[in-house]
């Protein structure tokens, strides 16, 4: 099967993808909620900014992240001063790149599910004495859960496949930033490494497929939330 190095690549990919999605999910939900529910000037601009990583060449996104997180950059300088840490050439940097690239897909899926929540049910909950906070926790959130799960899985799959922004931002450091796509790309440069390419590609396909099937099963279990009106 896989060599220890290849298992390491798989484990790193899962870690980077998992951390990226876990960190991006609350941000994605907040953005989705604001875009679905709040009217304010400049909303179109925010919508555009959120979707930018979807349409800008990934290498540009990676370069912008590099500018921001470099030791003399605005975010990098702050991290350096307060934590003495840098994310450059680190797995945490790879997770940031993956999270940024996954964010628009997550926001889209969650936004649709929030927009699909029947506001009249929220009104009904309020007349029954529920505070806005309780309405959110007991009605809005559970009813938008299928979209949140779909968004998380889509984001995870996107994070696993992240290549351009990652290699630009944190380079290809074996054992630190070398996720599946980067390892496959590296193996393609080596004559005679076709076996490794095949194995890693197969793992990529299986992981993506497993994520999609898992999301479908979870959605079916929570999917009793069809509206009755």
């Amino acid at each position: 099967m896989l060599t220890p190095e290849e298992w390491g690549v798989v484990a790193l990919s899962l870690k980077v993808g998992g951390v990226a999605v876990a960190a991006a999910l609350p941000v994605a939900f907040a953005l989705a909620w604001v875009l679905a529910r709040v009217r304010f000037p400049g909303k179109l601009l925010l919508d555009g900014l959120v979707h930018l990583p979807l349409v800008v060449p990934p290498v540009v996104t990676g370069w912008l992240l590099l500018l921001a997180f470099a030791p003399e950059g605005p975010v990098g300088g702050w991290l350096e001063r307060w934590f003495g840490a840098s994310v450059l050439f680190r797995w945490s940097g790879a997770a940031i790149a993956a999270g940024v690239m996954a964010l628009p897909l997550m926001v889209r899926a969650i936004r649709l599910s929030i927009e699909a929540v029947d506001r009249r049910l929220e009104d009904a909950a309020a007349t029954l004495g529920a505070t806005p906070r309780r309405v959110f926790l007991t009605v809005t959130l559970p009813l938008s859960l299928p979209g949140v799960i779909a968004g998380a899985v889509l984001g995870f799959a996107r994070a696993l496949g992240e290549f351009g922004a990652t290699i630009t931002f944190v380079s290809n450091v074996p054992g630190e930033t070398e996720t599946l796509p980067l390892a496959i790309y590296a193996a393609l440069q080596i004559p005679g490494a076709e076996g490794q390419v095949l194995r890693l590609a197969l793992v990529s396909v299986l992981l993506s497929l497993a994520a999609l099937v898992a999301s479908e099963l979870i959605a079916r279990r929570t999917g009793r939330g069809t509206h009755v009106l």
């Binding site: 049910l121 007991t138 009793r224 009755v228 009106l229």
Partner: peptide
Amino acid sequence: VFQEPRLFPH
């Protein structure tokens, strides 16, 4: 009691 029941489907 609304015109449609508005029961929480979940």
